[in-house]
Nucleic acid binder design. Structure first.
Lengths: 163, 163
DNA sequence: ATATATTTGGATGATATATATCCGTAATCA
DNA sequence: TGATTACGGATATATATCATCCAAATATAT
């Protein structure tokens, strides 16, 4: 069970967009340059974020992507679900209804106990993701990340928003 | 992010094996018949369980699969990791080290904060899976499942162990 | 108006992973 | 010896992920 690499990209993009000066936006070309990932494929993921309202877009010169709401109100769960969908990872195929022990459909009122246990664990995962906001990640990075890297990022950003 | 269907099969197999009389075993053909899944492919997953020690096997006539230890000491996490491996779902590709903000390798002592948050959520998922034992699932099923289905399962099992 | 920059969505291709089957070998039992 | 079974390797097929390209829509500036 591997998670799409696009999720990693999307989260990184959100943290970068959170550092963007008010009133400015970053086009996909610059986002892909910053993260060194394929531009067209990144664009697909950003479109998913856009549809989910996590980012807002404006077309045309000077346009691009910016956060759709304050970073305090964007959680990792929001991003994960925007990219990966909301379907549970564990898919119950109702094998209990097959084979020689199967009985009439009326006997299967509750979901399969195995599925319930798996889904319950997934719920715990989602709850944890929901606790972490983009703002928290940015704050954490401000503490931990090498000042040199932060400086480089800021000057790179200024090259965009200034020009 | 979809979970392998083999995990569902494996858990169902474990709960069935937990109901097996002491000293008996079920060959893969009967397990696949009971669950109505492809025999050869199920065999692959059972071999994974075997390598993990979750089930024990004996070859030859009368042989087959049985639990490798009491059902109280087999958790959903054990089964999931046996089938799916122990790799984290979220794979950090260190994109922070790429692009124009990258700095020297020495600056990246801690794992990326984004990865840590994702892994922390996964840990919560694993903890929940670890709380659920095969024995608990069997006990729950005994409460919930239609008595008719239980009866059918038992008589089907007797056809194997008796003959 | 025209040219430029940008997102959007559809179509398509490439690569990787999951699913499924087959076969030869080893082990076990009667 | 013969039957039964697990095991592991090889292979085939299906599905999902990854990636690219293009036409259309939209916005800005000149």
């Amino acid at each position: 069970m591997k998670m799409s690499e696009g999720i990693e990209w999307a989260i990184h993009c959100c943290t970068l967009l959170a550092a963007l000066p008010e009133g400015t936006a970053l086009p996909v070309g610059r986002l892909s340059e910053f993260h060194d990932v394929p531009k067209d494929y990144l664009a697909k993921h950003l479109q998913s974020l856009s549809r989910a309202g996590i980012v807002q877009t404006t077309r045309g010169p000077g346009g691009g992507y910016r956060l759709g709401r304050p970073a305090e109100r964007i959680t990792l769960l929001d991003v994960v679900e925007a990219i990966d969908g909301k379907d549970p990872c564990f898919q119950c195929t109702e094998i209990r209804r097959r084979g020689p022990s199967a009985v009439g459909a009326a006997a299967y009122k509750k979901p399969c106990g195995i599925a319930r246990a798996m889904w319950s664990a997934e719920a715990a995962w989602r709850r944890e993701l929901q606790k972490v906001t983009i703002a928290a990640l940015v704050a954490q990075a401000a503490e931990e990340v090498d000042p040199k890297q932060i400086e480089k990022s800021i000057s790179w950003l200024e090259r965009t928003t200034g020009g």
